[in-house]
């Protein structure tokens, strides 16, 4: 069929323009991400496996048991998650994918951190201003319906190959729930409590930090959980632009038609997903 309007062309022109004229910015971002990912990887890999596993298990135990950490009911509540962390991580280690698992975890943590850094303020903005909300909502819808692969194209364009485009594509893909749930959480804070803030002469900032954000926290944490899981679901796709970790092993498995490799690395991702999900959920439920 004949093309009558060429939207793709305009996007291309825009991206070319951005690439040419803001290259210093892309370089700086690239360097920052690469440096962060590399240092986190080397830090984590310098920790002996058993110690790392103990630390994760301790975090999981504490997240689940909370105030009851030192008595029987705490042990009862948190023994499941702790046991799962032990077995899961030992399994990954024994399958020989410890390094890749660490790389994937780093990728997920860095992407999540950036997604929250951007997403939470945007969410606050969209809760506070109906104009901002009117602009942000359709953009989020667009981002969520766009196939994840599409984000790889600009990412590669600005950052060539490696961990950086992987992180950027992952951030774009996992950003929407951070925005949506922050906004939802703030809007759902009971009107009377916010009104009380106003009635006692609180400034907008005081209302945000003393009332809205603390009360929205459980919802925001649910958003964090979703961001992490979306980021994890992106690791295989991100590996197509050169991101390292379990995702790239899955990708190799597909390319080489290697069922064993594909299954093992896939299992590794599932284990990481369950651990990250349970830990963040436990933090969210504590409130």
């Amino acid at each position: 069929m004949e093309k009558i309007i060429n939207i793709g062309k305009y996007i291309e022109i825009a991206i070319n323009f951005l690439e040419e004229h803001l290259s210093f910015l892309w370089n700086a971002i690239d360097n920052l991400i690469t440096w962060t990912v590399d240092s986190m990887n080397s830090l984590f890999l310098n920790i002996p496996f058993w110690l790392f596993m103990l630390i994760v298990a301790a975090i999981g135990y504490w997240a689940k048991s909370g105030k009851t950490a030192f008595n029987k009911s705490g042990i009862k509540k948190a023994s499941g998650i702790t046991l799962f962390i032990f077995i899961g991580l030992v399994l990954i280690y024994l399958m020989g994918y410890w390094k890749e698992a660490i790389e994937t975890t780093t990728l997920v943590l860095v992407s999540t951190f950036i997604a929250l850094l951007l997403g939470i303020p945007i969410g606050i903005l969209s809760a506070k201003s109906s104009l901002a909300n009117a602009i942000i909502r359709p953009v989020l819808d667009f981002m969520q319906t766009m196939p994840a692969f599409v984000y790889l194209i600009p990412a590669i364009f600005f950052f060539s190959v490696g961990n950086s485009p992987g992180v950027i594509a992952t951030v774009i893909f996992s950003l929407p729930p951070a925005v949506r749930l922050t906004s939802l959480g703030i809007k759902n804070v009971a009107g009377e409590v916010v009104e009380a803030g106003h009635a006692y002469g609180a400034t907008e900032n005081q209302i945000l930090f003393k009332i809205q954000l603390p009360l929205a926290m459980p919802t925001i944490l649910a958003g964090v959980n979703q961001v992490i899981l979306l980021a994890l679901s992106m690791v295989v796709i991100a590996s197509m632009v050169g991101a390292r970790g379990l995702g790239s092993i899955v990708y190799q498995g597909i390319q080489q038609n290697n069922i064993a490799k594909g299954f093992e690395s896939g299992l590794g991702i599932v284990i990481l997903a369950i651990i990250l999900d349970r830990i963040t959920q436990a933090f969210g439920n504590k409130k």
Binding site: A190, E192, V193, E195, A196, Y200, P214, L215, K287
Partner: peptide, 13 residues
């Protein structure tokens, strides 16, 4: 002036 609300308007946290 201070205000008192029907549903108390307390901060649960």
């Amino acid at each position: 002036m201070s205000m008192v609300f029907q549903n108390f308007g307390l901060l649960p946290h």
